[in-house]
Computed example of a mutant assay.
Amino acid sequence: MDIQNVKNLTLVGRLSINLASLNNEGTEGNATQPRTATIVDDGELYTVPVISGDMLKYWHVKHLCAIAQDRDLSLSENNARKNPNPNRLKAELAKHEWVIDKIPEAKEWEKKSDVDKDFLEQSLYGLVASECAVTDAHGLLITEVAPHDEDDKEVFSARVAVARTSRVQTGFMTGIPRKNATGHYFHAKYVSKRTGIKSRESTAGEGQNIFTRPATSADFAIVINVDLAGLGFNDAADKYEIDEEEQAKRKKAVVDALSYTLMNQPGANSSQQFPHIMGFEGAITTSTNRSPAPSASPIKGDYLETLEGLVKNINKMNGDSSAEYHTVESVEEAVSFLSN
């Protein structure tokens, strides 16, 4: 796949995972509750295990941060860390020195009444597209800018409304009806009898804690769309804020992070229940013009045929072959296609 010519990409398919506990809803008493949702398939309602799009997005962000650090791509302070912070560029926006370096006019905004909010908002749209590869790809909502000086005193404050739309869109990983099961397993932290007696007299939790934890095995339906043409693009000014070389690097990093997401899911309880990835089958659709790369839910049994038909119809409407459809039958095949 020639990533640099692709403007839009969609990955759909079924990822088979055994004995995972990746996205739970919380606990009730001493029992961990798995996340579930109700879906409709062929006119029937089913309650199935799900992994939220937020979790899927977190996996991609974490992998993208690591890739960006290895390849010296621009990153915000909150993303240049082992566990990224979703506030992304907001750490820099809290520092007056950084703000006046990027927006020289801010040096004169020492009073709230002096702030040119329209100019500030336009500047922020440019910064979120240029200054951090992860903020660029995954978006950020900025509602206030209140930088502080070296003495931690607020220099100025302004309420703004700057929304960077995420270029990576993720749906729920949804268990396929009749192809999923969740078991609840008994666990206990075994200790010596003497310590156990002591723990019952305190709240330190050092004794024999009994609890249950879920383990889900399922074929999960995945839908991910990536707007590669939107990377580095300033929606407000209708222009790119980065050059073609930087855009090419970010495209490659975002797609490689998608490959990493298929190979590794650093979710909840992975220290004890690292998921067994059994396989993947699906399709990757691409578009080299303004047409979207079509998607169809892998919950449907005939989703591959639907995708193929949609691609043919898009090319018929455009009178070209800008949309393409590629089937994959394993994680390895998907990664190979995305990386070449």
Rank of each mutant, 00 (worst) to 15 (best):
L127Y: 08
V128W: 03
A129L: 05
E131C: 04
C132K: 08
A133W: 08
V134G: 09
D136S: 06
D136G: 08
H138F: 15
H138Q: 11
H138G: 03
G139H: 04
G139L: 04
L141C: 06
L141A: 15
T143F: 01
T143V: 10
E144W: 01
E144I: 14
A146K: 15
P147Y: 07
H148A: 06
H148F: 08
D151Y: 11
D152N: 15
D152T: 05
K153M: 08
E154N: 08
E154A: 03
F156M: 07
V160R: 01
A161G: 03
A161N: 14
V162M: 02
A163Y: 09
T165M: 06
T165E: 12
T165V: 10
S166N: 06
R167G: 09
R167P: 00
V168C: 05
G171K: 12
F172I: 02
F172H: 13
F172T: 03
M173Q: 09
G175K: 04
I176L: 13
K179W: 00
N180F: 01
A181S: 11
T182K: 00
G183K: 05
G183E: 12
F186K: 09
F186V: 12
H187P: 07
A188C: 06
A188T: 04
K189I: 01
K189L: 06
Y190L: 14
Y190K: 11
V191S: 06
T195I: 11
I197G: 02
S199W: 03
S199Y: 03
R200K: 11
E201K: 10
S202D: 12
S202T: 15
T203E: 14
T203V: 08
T203K: 13
A204G: 01
A204C: 00
